[in-house]
């Protein structure tokens, strides 16, 4: 479904270039929910931007259903970490969710039903006419999620979407994502720096090394499909997986990180 092949990204030029991502290769199957974890500053956001078609990779390729990505593809939606900055403050919640659909040239009736369904799904049906700045942080992120869902994407990218919300809200949003993923049958790539979150959410956890980044490990999460905050998190298997991911990340941090060959 989504193929990332030998992806490399170098910023800057001349003598002071920075290699953010070195050589990334992985593949997401149709309908899979995968989480990407890595130490902070390991180029997760760079990777996401390359996958989303917002940045052109220096080398390697990203392809979606066999087609190479050169710009933002039509059937991909992105939820950013900075929810407050990714919503239009001058549009209502409904306006925000509807905007991409207008650009898709959908009819009024179709737009309305998509918007209503998406808002219903994230539990914001009552706030459709509010403005984003009238809502709490968690609710604002729900708006961004509703906008992504209403877009009917085949692939949903999420860049640390819950990094800036409080713990309780975060747990609710995690369950929301699992629910939406099942209901709308999307391929989801979820980027986070939180190990617990990655294991709790994903069918699979990809561990990235520190910069310059490669895929350190690819761990299948063999937890039952039905998960909930209490029992899943106290499950022994959950604890074991979490330790495994944690160890891998420590290895990634302390491991023999080769000096960047780009620097002379």
């Amino acid at each position: 479904m989504l193929d990332v092949n030998g992806l490399q990204k170098i910023y800057g030029g001349g003598e002071r270039e920075v290699e953010a991502v070195r050589d990334l290769t992985f593949r997401l199957e149709e309908g899979e929910l995968s989480c990407l974890v890595g130490p902070s500053g390991c180029g997760k956001t760079t990777l996401l931007k390359c996958v989303a078609g917002l940045l052109r990779p220096t080398a390697g390729s990203v392809s979606l259903a066999g087609h190479a990505i050169s710009g933002p593809p039509r059937d991909m939606a992105v939820v950013f970490q900075e929810y407050g900055r990714s919503l239009f403050s001058w549009l209502t919640v409904r306006g925000n969710v509807e905007l991409p659909l207008k650009e898709k040239k959908l009819g009024k009736g179709r737009r309305d039903s998509l918007v209503n369904e998406a808002l219903q799904a994230v539990g914001l049906a009552d706030s459709a006419e509010s403005y984003p700045w009238q809502l709490s942080g968690g609710m604002q992120q729900r708006v961004a999620i509703a906008r992504a869902i209403a877009y009917e994407p085949r692939v949903l990218l999420m860049d640390e979407p819950f990094a800036a919300v409080d713990a309780q809200t975060r747990a609710d949003l995690e369950d929301l994502i699992r629910g939406l993923w099942k209901r709308f049958a999307m391929t989801v790539l979820f980027i986070t720096h939180d190990i617990d979150e990655a294991v709790y959410l994903g069918q699979r956890v990809l561990v990235l090394s520190s910069s310059p980044t490669v895929v350190q490990d690819d761990i299948a999460v063999d937890l039952p499909d039905e998960r909930d905050q209490l029992s899943t998190r106290s499950d022994q298997r959950f604890t074991a997986l979490r330790s495994l991911v944690y160890t891998e990340i420590q290895n990634a941090k302390n491991g023999p990180a080769a000096p960047s060959p780009a620097a002379p």
Binding site: Y11, E15, R16
Partner: peptide
């Protein structure tokens, strides 16, 4: 600007002939 590229571009005073 690309996220982490900005400081590199700004800090660069000399020009390299390659790029």
């Amino acid at each position: 600007a690309p996220p982490s590229a900005a400081p590199v571009d700004k800090g660069e005073r000399r020009r390299s002939g390659t790029r």
